[in-house]
């Protein structure tokens, strides 16, 4: 049965798109047929982070408006053959997203995919509501910083009251906390909220901690999901989070091993300055 995951946060700039790209790539690397959908209509960026911006022909809104089929709009990733991207429209606004339209597309994708990852826009407006509405699980991306933690709490409240599962009275959405841009050194100095502090406040299970890393910018510069940076600490942290999400037993053995200089770094010559 297909599983719908929303990557959300409330606050902007905390790493939702980076996380959506990293998680969907990791799921595909583990052998699951995965599609990642950009819900940020009008401000799409997932295509850039995934490195497929020049291959966008049709988008999510074209499919909702029946100007194209789902098959025509899906972009097949060039690195992982199990991974597909459904880009957002750059020209329309978020009102173009309708509950019926989104439901129809998700239902169709469920027939073919194991995982459907929904990359939510920031805020709590239409786009964010639609991204979370049909979710089975939610990954709450939080920075160790007051405004991000507060917004995450607000989003958790909305997930529990306004999602499809909440309105139907079904089992609630499974929540996972992913802390990004974490600096152990600053936490030790008492300058940054610790993992425990954030967990005390949000009270949801921890999926992973992604350290602040230069590789994340290198990855977005190159349009390569950071999961594919074999030697990167951030990439490794994402791989660990993915293994935890799907269960260790379903994770291929090689997935969590630090490998030699990977293909993508050889191609782009990046991610070498990471402190280790």
């Amino acid at each position: 049965m297909a599983h719908v995951i929303v990557v959300t946060s409330g606050k902007g700039g905390v790493g939702k798109t980076t996380t959506s790209a990293a998680i969907s790539t990791g799921l595909a690397l583990c052998g699951f047929k995965t599609v990642v959908i950009d819900f940020d209509v009008g401000l799409r960026n997932l295509d850039l982070i995934m490195g497929c911006e020049r291959r966008v022909v049709y988008d999510f809104i074209n499919v909702i408006n029946k100007e194209a089929t789902v098959k025509q709009a899906l972009i097949k990733d060039k690195r992982c053959d199990q991974l597909f991207i459904l880009p957002a429209s750059q020209t329309r606004d978020k009102d173009a997203l309708t509950t019926e339209g989104v439901k129809e597309i998700i239902d169709e994708l469920k027939q073919e995919f194991d995982y459907i990852v929904c990359d939510s826009p920031a805020g709590i407006e239409k786009g964010a509501m639609m991204a979370m509405y049909f979710a089975d699980s939610a990954i709450i991306v939080t920075n160790p910083e007051v405004s991000s933690v507060r917004d995450s709490d607000r989003i958790l409240g909305i997930l529990n009251s306004k999602s499809h599962r909440a309105t139907l009275g079904q089992d609630s959405i499974k929540e996972h906390l992913l802390i990004t841009r974490y600096s152990e050194a600053r936490v030790k100095k008492g300058e940054m909220l610790s993992v425990q502090d954030i967990q005390d406040i949000l009270a949801i299970p921890l999926l992973g901690i992604i350290p602040e890393s230069q590789d994340v910018l290198s990855a977005s510069n190159a349009g390569v999901p950071v999961t594919l940076f074999d030697e990167s600490e951030a990439g490794m942290a994402y791989r660990r989070a993915i293994a935890k999400f799907i269960g260790e037993d379903k994770t291929p053995e090689s997935f969590l091993k630090k490998q030699k200089r990977g293909l993508f770094k050889r191609m782009f010559g990046i991610g070498e300055e990471t402190a280790r």
Partner: peptide, 10 residues
């Protein structure tokens, strides 16, 4: 420490 202050305020 500023982290403690942040936690209390939150």
């Amino acid at each position: 420490k500023s982290a403690n202050l942040a936690k209390e305020r939150l």
